[in-house]
Design a protein around this nucleic acid. Sequence first.
DNA 1: CGAATGTATCGACGTTTGTCAATCCATGGA
DNA 2: TCCATGGATTGACAAACGTCGATACATTCG
Lengths: 114, 114
Amino acid sequence: MAKRPAAVIEPTVDTCCASVLSAPLDETQARDLARAFAALADPVRLRLLSLIAEAGEVCSCDLLEALGKAQPTISHHTKILAEAQLITGDKRGRWVWWRVEHDRLAELRNTLSP
Amino acid sequence: MAKRPAAVIEPTVDTCCASVLSAPLDETQARDLARAFAALADPVRLRLLSLIAEAGEVCSCDLLEALGKAQPTISHHTKILAEAQLITGDKRGRWVWWRVEHDRLAELRNTLSP
DNA sequence: CGAATGTATCGACGTTTGTCAATCCATGGA
DNA sequence: TCCATGGATTGACAAACGTCGATACATTCG
C-alpha cells in the first residue's frame, strides 16, 4: 500500500491562503477559501480523495467500481477536485492517473490553524 | 484585541474523525466529514468565523453590520456553524455570545493530515 | 483506416442551499 | 403588565449542485 514516490515535499506552504483564525477575511479571501472547502464538502469526493491517497496513483476506471457511481459522475468529481488543486491528473496512454496534491492539502490545513 | 479568556485548550482531540489520507473512508465517515466541511464552504460563514475568532466573543448584533446581511441570514449561518460544532452560543440576557470551538477546528484540521 | 475503449462534455432532472420579508418567541426595562 | 428589542422560525424564490443517459473526443490496437 501507498506506493507514493517517497517524496520529501512540504517545503513551499502557507504563502497562499490567509488563516481563518488570525484576522477577519475580506470578501475575496472568503470566496476563494469557501470554494476550496466546497470541494471537500461532498462524501463522494472525500472517498475519492482517500482512495487516491491510499493507492498513490489511481486511474478513473478503478474509481468507478469503488464508488458505485456512473462514469460522468466520477469525471465531474475529479474535475472539481482538480480545479481545487487537490488532485492532479496525468494522462498516460488511454488512462488518466490521479494523485493527491499534498502541498495544497497542507495549505488548507493551515487556514484552520491559529 | 482578542479578549479570549486565556484558555489552555487543546487536550481532547482527534478521537473523532478519521483522516482522509490514511485509509479509504466508508460512506458514513464520508457523509459526516462532508457535512463538517460544508459548514466551511460558504464565504459568509468563513468571515463570520474569523470575526468571532478575532473578537473572542461576539453577539449576533455585531455580526449583522459587519457582514451586511439580513438578520435571518446571520441567524441561519450561526445555526449551521453551531450544528457543525465550530462555534457555540451562550445566551446571556438578551444577547447571544458566540465563540469558536478550537478543539473542533483542530479535529477537522487533523482529518487533512497524513 | 476502422473498431474498441477510457474520459470529457452536454442536457435534463430533482434536490439542496443562500437569501430575505414577515412573523413568532423570549427577555428586560418601564 | 405592557412595550421594546435581540434572535429564531417560517415560507418563498432563485441559484447552485449531484446525478446520469446520450454523445463527442482521443488513443490504442488490429
